[in-house]
């Protein structure tokens, strides 16, 4: 497949560094909010096609995952953040979010949505701040629950061939909570993003 997105090493490093700083801030905020130490991986920046995304998400056992999406837009840059939760971590996730009520189906969905909102918000706000823009967020939408990863990704027809993907892995200390956050920025926004990066690189 031809590379439709041209991203040179400098841009990639710059974006990686921005994400890294944002992750640091996000980790601090999340630790304060959740009263638990959050272990974050080094963000991975890559240009991927939809099928490659599934492969990129290695850290998650792909048998049963729940996915939630949240769109964001601002400063000419638009995209969607996708959070994939490992299903085995569900009860721990609810505990972490201080949901003491019985875990009904609706409660499960609410925990998913709230967790997504917090995790994506924490990261994207940090990224936006460094690029001197502000994102507005839409409400998170559930992509699917308790499904195999392939099905989850294929059930939604994607209209792009390649996208810039920032991948981050979260773990919470002493809790069996593990999730993957993918920030997908499509071709349309890339010009603005590169302009911002050039400005930062100069």
């Amino acid at each position: 497949m031809s590379q439709t997105i041209a991203l040179n090493e400098d841009h990639r490093d710059c974006l990686q560094e921005i994400s890294n700083v944002a992750m640091g801030q996000a980790g601090d905020h999340l630790a304060r909010l959740l009263d638990n130490f959050v272990i974050l991986s080094i963000p991975n920046v890559a240009v991927l096609s939809p099928t490659e995304i599934a492969m990129a998400v290695q850290t998650i056992d792909d048998h049963n995952v729940s996915g939630v999406c949240q769109g964001f837009i601002g400063g000419g840059i638009a995209g969607e953040a996708m959070l994939l939760f490992n299903d085995t971590s569900f009860s721990d996730l609810a505990k972490l979010m201080e949901y003491d009520d019985e875990l009904t189906e609706t409660a499960e969905r609410e925990v998913l949505i709230d967790a997504t909102n917090i995790l994506t918000g924490a990261l994207l706000r940090g990224i936006a701040e460094q690029m001197d823009i502000e994102f507005s967020f839409g409400p998170p939408a559930i992509l699917g629950q308790h499904q195999e990863l392939d099905k989850l990704l294929s059930s939604n027809s994607v209209r792009w061939e390649q996208a810039l993907v920032i991948e981050v892995n979260y773990k919470v200390e002493d809790h069996n909570v593990q999730c993957d956050l993918l920030v997908v920025i499509t071709e349309n926004s890339l010009n603005y993003l590169l302009k911002k990066l050039n400005y930062l690189l100069d």
Binding site: H29, L33, M97, D114, N117, I118, G121, A122, R125
Partner: peptide
């Protein structure tokens, strides 16, 4: 609980 994340993360909630 819901508003706590708004105050700490300065982030919208839905």
């Amino acid at each position: 609980r819901k508003t706590q994340s708004v105050y700490i993360l300065k982030n919208s909630a839905f």
